[in-house]
């Protein structure tokens, strides 16, 4: 990535688009502190994360970032409810979080699937668990990597609607990587990358 200079204000829904290999996922990884930038500076909620150690970064992620992945990335050995609980538990919260986990799972329509393991769930259901997980810690920032990329059109649409609705309710800043122009159509802002550079940055009129 070269010469990237962007600021995403609080509450904004930004879509990142571009062809394969243009650097979309790399940008997302850098924003989440999953990768280290060779030069430059990344500020997350006012905090400079470029110089943070691995563990400090993990803590920042735990507090501030929710994740939704293209391939769901649920832990196969945990039930739906336990998967949702995991980030909260890693952050050291107590058992009262269980209530919120159940509430989130109910909101995504999985009230009767809480004790199922990922293999017992369909792709759409797995991604809905992942959505609930992303919001469990009430993160100010939500990063999504092609969240509907592995789902069929109809399921994808449902998941997207859920994502947007939850985001509205929770009031998080949303950064989403996508190939899908229709999906990007829902965003406040569309940033297009090509060969590691920003090719365009379009802010929709409110």
């Amino acid at each position: 990535m070269r010469g990237i200079d962007i600021a995403i204000p609080k509450g904004q829904f930004a879509a990142i688009m571009g062809p394969s290999g243009s650097g979309k996922s790399t940008l997302l990884g850098l924003l989440a502190g999953l990768d280290n930038a060779t030069s430059g500076q990344i500020l997350l909620d006012g905090v400079d994360i470029t110089g943070l150690t691995e563990d400090q970064m993990a803590e920042v992620r735990g507090r501030k970032i929710g994740f939704v992945f293209q391939s769901f990335q649920l832990i196969p050995t945990l039930t739906a409810e336990e998967n949702v609980l995991l980030p909260a538990e890693l952050a050291g919260t107590g058992p009262e979080t269980v209530g919120r986990a159940r509430e989130l799972l109910t909101r995504v329509g999985l009230a009767d699937r809480m004790d199922h393991y990922p293999v017992q769930l369909s792709g759409g259901e797995q991604q809905r668990v992942a959505l609930a997980r992303a919001f469990i810690t009430k993160p100010p920032i939500l990063l999504a990597d092609e969240p509907t990329g592995n789902l069929d059109g109809r399921t994808g649409q449902q998941v997207l609607e859920l994502l947007l609705e939850l985001n509205r309710l929770e009031g998080a800043t949303l950064v989403m990587v996508t190939h899908d122009a229709a999906l990007a159509g829902h965003a406040d802002r569309v940033i297009t990358l090509r060969d590691g550079l920003i090719a365009s940055d379009v802010l929709k009129a409110a």
Binding site: D55, A58, E59, R61, G62, F67, Q73, I75, R133
Partner: peptide
């Protein structure tokens, strides 16, 4: 290893 990577994304520290 995959589960561990996921946990790291979700904020797990190496010590955890």
């Amino acid at each position: 290893m995959d589960s561990i990577a996921v946990m790291k994304c979700l904020g797990a520290k190496s010590s955890q």
